[in-house]
Amino acid sequence: MIVYLARRLLALAGVLLAIAAVTFLIFYVLPADPAAAACGKTCSAERLADVRVHLGLDQPLWRQFADFLTGIFTGRTLGTGQYAVTCDFPCLGYSYESSLPVWDLLMDRLPVSASLALGAAVLWLILGLGAGVTAALRKDTATDKALMVGAVAAASLPVYFTSVMLIHGVIRIAGLLPYPTYQAFTDNPLGWASNLLLPWTALALLYAAMYARQSRGSMIEAMAEPYIRTARAKGMPERTVVVKHGLRSGMTPILTIFGIDLGGLLAGAVITESIFGLPGIGRLFYGALVNSDQPVVLGVTLLAAFFIVVANLVVDLLYAVIDPRVRY
């Protein structure tokens, strides 16, 4: 177990390092000059050269990359002399656009994206698994067919369509909710929930549809296992057969996709956040990409990768808890 964990953590570090390197390289080959971006529109040639030195852009690429990595773990000092700025651990650099530490930008927006992701996840698990398991238990009936047609329809609607329809229908026509403005959970839990209700719904619909199809399939498979027949032969009530014997094995495959999906969403949902005006990481990323704000793009990419690989690791460790045959 310890050995396994150590090996997995090492691999995790390797993946993150590779992602950081690739993202770094992509920016290096891009035609946009980071110094010009940082310097702004009214920039003299002299100032541009200063900025270049200040940002360390005069250094060779490997050196810049090494400095960047060191900064993450120990913090670093950017620039020299009177322009020197200390960037505290964990240092992901400064945004060229806003001159704020990337780490602070990420941490400011993480609660928004996490609120969106977690709320939507609760919603899509309830909807998706509910529909999937119901369909599986009523396989080939009208209920099953209706649910699966609904799932295909929901899965084929892009988020930007459902989002706009929700805004139009619920806010503009029905006037049930105000246009969402994000409120922190800690300030106003009710406002937090009511403002996130539509984004949650828009995001959850898509995922719920995919989860309904997935869970239907794996539940049908689980309920066809010989041990389900054994449970029935023992005279167990059908509810116990389904819940205790069927669901436990039927839901195991769902865990894998859920880990990856949630991990990916924690670092921001670009489209949903943009449409609903949520100040999350997804919107930060979009803005940074448009403006070639390399440190921010790099920071978001690394954070997203971090969430996904950690979620994967957690899922794998959970497998050992769920399935006694899995041992590390």
């Binding site: 010989p226 054994t230 449970a231 399935d323 045959r325």
Partner: peptide, 21 residues
């Protein structure tokens, strides 16, 4: 109430007939 109580059944493949979890 009868199944498993007054009549019981065993199957061909005991591994897949027992719940692995």
């Amino acid at each position: 109430k009868v199944r498993g109580r007054r009549m019981a059944m065993i199957f061909q493949d005991p591994l897949s007939s027992l719940h692995p979890y």
